[in-house]
Amino acid sequence: MTAVDNTQTSSSSRRTIELVVLVGLVTAFGIISALVRFPLEEGEKLRDVIGIIIGAGLTFIFYSFLYRDNPLFKIAENLYVGVALGYGAIITWRQSLRPEVYDPLFRAVTSEAFWHELSYRVVPIVLGILLMTRLSKKHSWLSRYSYGLMVGWGAGMGIFVVTDSYILKQLEGAIRPLQKIVTDPDVAANLSFFDQAWPVVGSLVILIGTVSVLFYFFFSVPHKRLGSGFSRVGISYLMIAFGASFGYTVMGRMSLLIGRVQFLMFEWLKIKQ
């Protein structure tokens, strides 16, 4: 036998083993679900129990990706995209277009109320419909009126809000060392040296960090001597912050996994904690 034949044989035997394992796992899942979830307990509804079993099945299908990409995973992935899309479309109708467009116009009690609502809403409705022209190559320019209005408003409002909330208020926070120095002698007398010094030192640490990070970002000229040292301080601050973010990201991802395990154990298998 040649090397190619050997590879083909081992690949097909591996596929057979995988298929047998898959059938075994699906059977085991069915048997466990049937044994644990049936007969129904008092107060349980059949459709909820079936829902939990489907949810558990989908959970396992997604985890099968950890072994290898497979058709079941792809089916579940696409189904999920579709369900999310359908859910979003219905919610947009129920929670946005129906209360904002349909109800005020088509459920207006009097014709006076209808005309009042129409005069108030006609411009945004027309602009909303114009958005849809983006789907047409020929008429997509019409959507620019709607986008122009939204983008212009966002940009103008953004300049004001960002300056106030993210720049001025944050700069105020960065220069707080000066505010933290206790100038009242009566108050100062009751504080230890550490109590007086700590907030100031802490705030200076923050101030130096913020300025050095900004220095590293903005002064793209070659950093020499003092500038280079200060820029390196900024990098160190950034590294510690990225490390902290990594630590928190691990925490977040593990929490999601814990959530799924809790679902499988407490809801599917009904294990009491």
Partner: peptide, 26 residues
Amino acid sequence: TTAVIAPKLYPFLQTDQLVGFLGGLR
């Protein structure tokens, strides 16, 4: 917030733009 977002909120705690916060499952 989710834990992934949590570190980004500390500047707003120091400026009192937030009164407190809960980070992730913890």
